[in-house]
Simulated scan of single mutants.
Amino acid sequence: MTITQEFELTGLKEIGRIVSQTMHAMAAQIEAGMTTAELDDIGRRFLEREGAVSAPKTTYDFPAHTCISVNEEIAHGIAGPRVLKAGDLVNIDVSASKDGFFADTGASFGLGKVVPQLERLCRDGKKAMEIGIAQVGAGKPLAGIGNAVGRFASKGGYTLIRNLASHGVGRSLHEYPQEIATWPTRGDRRKITKGMVLTVEPFLSLGGEWADDGADGWTLYAVPSAPVVQYEHTVVATPRGPLIVTVPH
């Protein structure tokens, strides 16, 4: 969507706050021995209390309220009986709607003490997202996001998953502009317009290059198999730069 009126920004900030607080509430209660279904239920109850509804469930009939991906799973993991263990790499992706506005956020967390390699990957995954967000602004090229993230990834010896892109959001979960690359591209001449709402969500990896479907038809895995982290914010493009709405204010 494109923000043109103040009430639209107010509505977007409200659902942005909700999804952010939901994700952080879930992360704060992760512990070894709990199941991903129990973690998802924390998110469900938080969304319901705030009067919001799960976007993947209502849009795609996803079989959970949030996406929880563990270790070898890199996105769209289905909550269920899987038991979380110390040292796991857990990604929580929360998207929801309220009063006709949608927002999307996500982050990866190490459960307890993780190996130093994963600590570094998490730290740099968040940095990759921040570098991408810094390229958002009215009049700037959409391709600037992926080009900047790509330079950072290459310098750090990382790879990027190249078929999981950022996207427009606001009045629906996925909308124009579709397929916003978070890796280097050529030929994308699209410009970011004033008020454009989009996600920035690079998938940084220690060797993975593509996302492939699993047997359940939802969960995605890295090819080649390697650890992957994802960090995501919903952002509004302004003449002064990016305005992040998925913050727990």
Rank of each mutant, 00 (worst) to 15 (best):
S166F: 04
V236F: 05
L206A: 08
G195I: 13
A237D: 04
Q230L: 13
M196Q: 15
V236W: 00
K194N: 15
Y231L: 00
H174F: 13
T182Y: 06
R171H: 13
E232N: 10
A165V: 08
D188E: 02
D188R: 00
A222R: 05
H174E: 13
T182K: 05
V169F: 11
T185P: 03
A222C: 10
R190P: 04
A165Q: 09
A222M: 10
L198T: 13
P202L: 08
H174I: 15
K194Q: 14
G187L: 00
Q230S: 14
V236N: 00
F203I: 07
K194V: 03
T199Y: 04
A211G: 15
P224T: 10
I192H: 04
G217N: 07
L173G: 05
G170D: 09
T219E: 00
E232K: 13
K194P: 02
V223R: 14
V197M: 10
G207Q: 09
I180N: 01
V169W: 06
G217I: 09
G195R: 08
W183D: 02
P177C: 07
E232L: 13
V229T: 08
G195T: 10
Y221S: 02
A211V: 04
W210F: 11
S205Q: 10
S225F: 04
G187V: 00
P184L: 07
P227H: 08
A165N: 13
A181P: 03
L220G: 02
Y231H: 14
L164N: 09
N163P: 08
P202K: 07
W218D: 01
Y221A: 01
R171W: 06
S172A: 15
G195D: 09
D212C: 07
G168Y: 10
P177F: 10
E209L: 14
L220H: 02
V228S: 03
E209Y: 06
L173K: 08
E175G: 09
D212H: 06
L173E: 05
K194C: 12
A226D: 09
H233W: 12
M196F: 10
V228M: 08
A181K: 01
E179T: 07
V228I: 06
P227D: 05
R190F: 05
T185F: 02
L164V: 14
H174A: 09
T185N: 06
A181S: 15
E175T: 14
K191P: 03
W183L: 03
T182P: 05
K194Y: 06
G168E: 09
P202A: 11
P224F: 07
T199F: 07
R190W: 08
K191V: 14
E232Q: 13
V236M: 01
D188K: 01
D188C: 02
E232R: 13
A211W: 01
V223L: 14
L220D: 00
D188L: 01
H233N: 14
P177A: 06
P177W: 11
A226L: 12
G187F: 00
M196S: 10
H167M: 12
E175P: 07
T238I: 07
H233A: 11
H233T: 04
V236L: 02
D188V: 00
Y221W: 10
A211M: 05
L198W: 06
R189D: 14
K191T: 14
A211H: 02
R171V: 12
T238K: 03
V200R: 00
E179N: 13
S225D: 15
I180P: 00
R190Q: 11
V169E: 04
Q230N: 15
T234N: 07
R189I: 05
T182R: 04
